[in-house]
Structure formats: C-alpha cells, structure tokens
C-alpha cells in the first residue's frame, strides 16, 4: 500500500508540470492584461508597471522565472491584490472554503445516505416517492435560486440568520451557505445510495444471507451497505474536491472570502499569478483526493486491493 501510494505521488509530478505549462500558456493567451482599464495608462507608466512585475520579459523567460519560484514554494505577488502574495491569499481563503465544504459534505453524506437507505428499503412505497421527489427537486433547482430564497426567508423576513458572511461573527453565518451547498449534494447522494443498495439487495449473496435467517437490519449493516457505498464513494472524490475549493455562486451570494470567489476575481482581472496559483493548488488537491478515494476503495473492497 505504501509503495502504491508513493508510486501514485511520483506519477503526479509530470501531471502537475503539464498543468502548470498549459495554464501558463492559456492565461497569457487570453486577450487583455492584468492592468488594462477604461482609464488606460500612458505608455511610460505602463512600462514602469511591466518592469516591476517582469511582464516586459519574453514569455519563456517569464515562465522559467515563474517555475523557479514555484519550485521554491513562491507563487509570486498577486496583481489584483497588490499588498498580498498569492500564497497568502490561498492560505487565507482555502481554510474558509474547506470549512464550509467539509460541513456541507458531512451533512450531505449523513442525510443523503440515510435517506437513500430508507428509500431503498421501502422502494416503490410512498416514502420512497417523497424522498426521491425531494432529491429530484434538489438536483434540478440550481443553487443560485436556492441560496437567495434561503436568504430572503431566514434573513430578510424572519431575521433569524445573517444574510452574509460579514453579517455576523459567530457560527450562525455558516448555516445558510452550508445548507445551500449541501442541498444538491444530499439529493445526489440519496439517489446514488438508493439505486446502488437496491441492486446489491437483489444479488445472490444477500439472498443467501436471508436464507440463513438474518434480519434486514443486520443484512444492510453487515453485508449490503459496504458494497453499495462504492458508487457513492467514487462520486464523493470529485464532489469533495469541488466543494472544498469553493462554490463560486454560494461565495458570491453570501460574500464568503473563499477560494472560488478569489479564482473568479483573478480570472476576470487577468491576475496571472493568482490564477496559476489557484489552478496548481486545485490540480494538486484533485490528485490527492483521487488517491484517497482509490485507497478507500481498497479498504472497503478486498477484491480491488488484490489487483
């Protein structure tokens, strides 16, 4: 297992390098530069700014300078936050996105899996239809509709919860964003769990277990749930990555200082170093999460481990 992990981590290095090269070329190919504005700058001022940020050097030079910095762990200064470095900005915003993401995924897993099991056990009953109807709604209503509705109801009408991140200093500011992030995930997880559990429950080894006289609760707990979790787990890998790195929409609506908002601002402003920093960070995170999911597969299903 250790050798496998090491091999995977070493294999990630060329992938990351490729990501850096591609991202570097793409951001520089996008029209417009980081300091363009309607109030265009006189040529000599533009030259001074380019010199300070080394934007006057040929592109290959800039790339080598950047790569050299990255290898030393220096992602450069941000162009759109002139008082901060890229590492500082990511270091400040990732914990915020991660906190929300973990809470949302936790909520989604606990509620989603429970609902899925309930629906699977009572499949085709009224309860199943209610749960699946809820799930379908959760999937089809986009978060940019749900979040403002939650704000209107809980913050503007009832004044129970803050409408934004800066509207309160305590944990109550987490509730609405976490709920907005979790709702669609709950729906997905519930549907996946239900479908997969129904399939497992109809397989031969479950029939054998029943024949041996085991009750439904014991069958689900000891035999059916683990194999039924495999598809859910493979969904969770990328979903966790997406949620951890910040939902742009939720962060914009609630004014949350997370990674998603930072990334959008960086790309709109052509903040080359910040875009690159976030892309590299994101790529590394996805590689890591995929590895964790694969390791968990092995832990859950011995057949995979042997391969």
């Amino acid at each position: 297992m250790l050798r496998y992990t090491l091999r995977r981590l070493l294999g990630a290095i060329p992938t990351l390098l490729l990501v850096i090269v591609l991202a570097f070329l793409l951001v520089h190919a996008a029209p417009g530069g980081p300091f363009d504005d309607e109030r265009a700058l006189p040529a000599e001022i533009e030259a001074n700014i380019a010199a300070v940020y080394h934007l006057d050097e040929p592109l290959p030079m800039q790339f080598l300078r950047y790569l050299g910095g990255v290898l030393k762990g220096d992602f450069g200064p941000s162009y759109s936050y002139r008082d901060y470095t890229v590492s500082e900005l990511i270091g400040r915003s990732f914990p915020v996105s991660m906190q929300l993401g973990i809470l949302a995924m936790l909520l989604a897993t606990v509620i989603g899996v429970s609902l899925g099991i309930l629906a699977a056990l009572k499949s085709n009953s009224a309860l199943d239809r209610v749960v699946m109807g809820f799930a379908m709604t959760g999937i089809s209503i986009p978060v940019f509709v749900i979040a403002p509705l939650l704000v209107l109801f809980f913050a503007v009408k009832l004044h129970w919860l803050p409408a934004s991140w800066t509207g309160s200093a305590d944990a109550s500011r987490l509730l609405l964003p976490v709920l907005s992030l979790a709702l669609p995930q709950i729906a997905y997880v519930a549907r996946l769990t239900r479908a997969s559990l129904i399939e497992v429950l109809s397989s031969d080894f479950i029939r054998t277990a029943r024949a041996q006289g085991l009750g439904t609760a014991a069958i689900v707990r000891y035999h059916a749930l683990k194999p039924a979790m495999l598809p859910v787990l493979s969904y969770m890998g990328p979903a966790v990555a997406a949620v951890l790195t910040g939902s742009v929409v939720v962060e914009e609506i609630f004014g949350i200082p997370g990674l998603g908002q930072l990334f959008v601002r960086a790309s709109l402003n052509r903040d080359y170093t910040l875009v690159l920093g976030v892309v590299i960070f994101y790529a590394a995170l996805i590689i890591l999460l995929n590895l964790i999911v694969d390791l968990l597969y092995g832990a859950i299903d011995p057949r995979i481990r042997r391969r």
Partner: peptide, 19 residues
C-alpha cells in the same frame, strides 16, 4: 466596516436584513 459586496441583489438583501 466596509463590506465587499459584488452582487447587487445580495447587497440589497443585506441592506434589508439590517447588515
């Protein structure tokens, strides 16, 4: 407190919520 609010509708809601 200068709050950074990029969305106009979100800003209006925060105003109505008393923030």
């Amino acid at each position: 407190r200068h709050h950074i609010v990029t969305q106009e509708v979100a800003e209006f809601n925060r105003y109505r919520a008393g923030e």
